[in-house]
């Protein structure tokens, strides 16, 4: 379950110590924009040690590495991969070969560190016009790619348009990226909402992204986490409906019936899949078991 991904700076011990208590399903320890150029080495080693010695409980740790153009990304991976973070987030991914390049190097480091090959996942950050247009190829570039994440701040700069709260200017890009992800059978995560004081704006933006099909949303402040978690959690009504789906399927099976309908609607595979997903989430949220298995 990854409703929220909270960005935290990679060179600030006081914040990293508390990464797991801020309510986010995942935190992104950032080696890129949140670290000044002269402290890249310090952040890399600090994040590595944090992964090695700190206990983050059930909170997933994602590490955002420096861009391919920087020359620092290999050093980042050299230090970080052996400590087995769940996910590596490369930035400004614009084409499938960016992913292939990174994946190949990760394989190399995994071999060197004697950890299972392919165990490190990649979540490319798509934040260029080229990246958006190549989104499907990026999503399919490697089996390590578990999700794509759209970043609309850099993207609007690349598009030469103004970033607005309503986000009309990035509607196409968001739609295209989520469609690419679903086509490739992976998850899609939405860009952060940058006005940390506008709670209503955040809620609307998150609801809009959920409506497009996004799995979750990145946060740039812990104060955003609760709202985003709430938006991307199934409602009690959703859970109730999902339970009902499996109940009527079980009843139909017991009676030897093939076709099943609920409230006058045929229960087909998409409905079952959705219900299963809702119950998995409900279980993860402690709202009863996913007993449909």
């Amino acid at each position: 379950m990854r409703r929220t991904m909270l960005f935290l700076p990679g060179n600030t011990p006081n914040i990293i110590i508390n990464a797991d208590v801020l309510g986010a399903d995942s935190v992104i320890l950032d080696l890129e924009d949140a670290v000044s150029p002269d402290q890249k080495d310090a952040a890399r080693i600090l994040v590595r040690n944090a992964l090695k010695y700190m206990n983050f409980g059930s909170c997933e740790i994602i590490v955002r590495i420096n861009p391919l153009s920087s020359g620092m990304w290999k050093e980042d991976l050299d230090e970080i991969i052996p400590l087995r973070p769940s996910v590596i987030m490369p930035t400004k991914v614009s084409a499938s070969y960016d992913v292939e390049h990174i994946a190949a190097y990760i394989t190399e480091v995994e071999k060197r560190a004697a950890i299972p090959e392919g165990s490190t996942q990649i979540m490319p950050l798509i934040e260029t016009a080229r990246g958006v247009e190549n989104a499907f190829h990026i999503a399919e570039a490697d089996k390590r790619v578990c999700a794509v994440f759209i970043g609309c701040e850099d993207l609007t700069a690349d598009l030469r348009c103004v970033r607005t709260k309503t986000g009309t200017e990035v509607f196409y890009a968001r739609s295209r990226v989520v469609c690419a992800a679903r086509a490739a059978g992976i998850e899609a995560y939405d860009t952060p909402f940058t006005d940390i004081n506008d709670k209503e704006g955040l809620r609307k933006d998150a609801e809009f992204a959920k409506g497009l099909g996004y799995t979750g949303k990145a946060c740039i402040s812990p104060r955003q986490v609760d709202i985003v978690n709430e938006v991307f959690s199934p409602s009690d009504a959703d859970i109730e409906y999902a339970r009902l789906v499996f109940k009527v399927i079980a009843e139909a099976k017991a009676q030897g019936r093939g076709a099943v309908s609920l409230k006058g609607k045929m229960i087909d595979k998409p409905i079952v899949d959705r219900a299963a997903f809702v119950l998995e989430m409900a279980k993860a949220l402690g709202k009863g078991g996913a007993d449909h298995e």
Binding site: P13, D41, A42, I45, L46
Partner: peptide, 17 residues
């Protein structure tokens, strides 16, 4: 008030620099 793993990271960084 750094934790041990932070002390270790900073010492390593300084030595490497």
């Amino acid at each position: 008030g750094a934790l041990d793993c932070v002390v270790k990271a900073r010492v390593e960084t300084a030595v490497r620099r």
